[in-house]
Design a protein around this nucleic acid. Structure first.
Lengths: 223, 223
DNA sequence: AGCATCTTCATGAAATCTTCACCAAAAATT
DNA sequence: AATTTTTGGTGAAGATTTCATGAAGATGCT
């Protein structure tokens, strides 16, 4: 399922967008401000971003720049008022893929989303095959077609790393992955979990490092 | 002759600044409040603004925003007290080009003015493609498409320089970039970090200097 | 209780950050 | 122009932080 990140401070609009996306069987996540959206992008796989330029905390300009500094994800700009038009045009230079001006119909949004996703897919290089397979229903994983015996915590950490490879995940964040909500345990705990995950991965393939330590920050799965 | 606008409510300070500027054959105009300064800017050609943030009528914040709404002129902030430091840092986001904290020597002012005027001139030329790529999600950087192996502190410093090129960054400021909050370590530490960053950059491209030393102030990345 | 799992702790090793002493370059002073 | 002072570069040593590891304690489930 394709996942869309909605960045829109107007709840009504966000809900109507989410509604039509859902109807077209897209997954979605909504944030009403720039900071949380950027955080989310750091730690999750997103197929497309719908970005309102009139946010309360950061300007759409800055959000887009920050997105582009780390990701190639398609971004569709939503402009609130006509008099922002000039500014919005400037965004194209920053790497926005399309922009829509309010008022807009839900149909228009979905059409844009589909178009951008189609473009992006054909543009992007063929992805290398992952050596991992996740059976979410069974809470199981295969690595090089071999079953991995993982504890619940290990499964949650590793499956999150596999779904979001090649980016750093802080220990704090990985703790939150294990426990949905904030949890009082020491972040050093993650070291131990990573250790045992590494051990299990090495039993199957010790030819290279699979989980890289990013010193001072956290861990990252190499693809 | 280059013309400097001095916005400073303390007459003694304004006069001493004007004195050193004159000695270095800069032209100058002095106002002791924000309103008159903005008026003056509307009707006169100014090459650089020296702006005290502690004005009687308008906050430096607002003055800078209003300047930026109509002009790209380099603005060097003068901060009265140390405890304004954080606030002043925020001004960089608003487009301040540099800031000086009191007490300051006349030489420092002239150095800043010269540095900014030089930067501004070179900036107005067509921008060349940056040779840097930042992968924020992985906390990594490419230089000439080659991976840079950087320590956390080096990464923080260099990515900051890359994001704000052609601008002088004081050692104090770069220290705050490494440690989010004030930190007790010596500013000379930055010299050592810069040294190792330079070494790594030179290993890839030694054809020219990439990080320029602005004597008496700090460092600047040349694009 | 017995078992699996999660967490904590102590330790050593490695990476990194800071400091220092000395030299070179630039600026200020005479 | 010569000298003094200030500032920055350099290499290496020392201090500090961070991480991996193995083992032990805590927790929770059956």
């Amino acid at each position: 399922m394709q996942h869309i990140l909605i960045v829109e401070d107007d709840k009504t609009i966000a809900e109507s967008i989410a509604f039509v996306l859902e109807k077209d069987s897209f997954g979605w996540t909504w944030y009403d401000n720039g900071h949380d959206s950027l955080d989310y992008l750091d730690n999750n796989e997103v197929d497309l971003v719908l970005l309102d330029v009139g946010l309360p905390d950061i300007s759409g300009f800055d959000v887009l720049r920050k997105i582009r500094s780390k990701s190639n994800v398609p971004v569709v700009i939503i402009s609130a008022r006509d008099d922002e038009a000039d500014q919005v045009l400037g965004l194209e230079g920053l790497g926005a893929n399309a922009y829509i001006t309010k008022p807009f119909s839900p149909r228009v949004i979905v059409a844009h989303v589909r178009a951008q996703l189609r473009n992006f897919r054909s543009n992007s290089e063929p992805k290398s095959e992952s050596k991992f397979a996740i059976n979410e229903a069974m809470q199981r994983m295969l690595f090089h077609n071999q079953e991995l015996t993982l504890t619940p915590a290990e499964y949650k950490i590793l499956s999150h790393l596999v779904k979001n490879p090649n980016r750093v995940h802080t220990r704090e964040y990985l703790l939150k992955v294990i426990w949905d909500r904030p949890h009082g345990s020491d972040v050093k705990t993650i070291n131990t979990h990573i250790k045992s995950i590494r051990k299990r991965l090495n039993e199957i393939d010790s030819s290279c490092e699979h989980i890289e330590t990013i010193r001072g920050i956290g861990y990252s799965l190499i693809e």
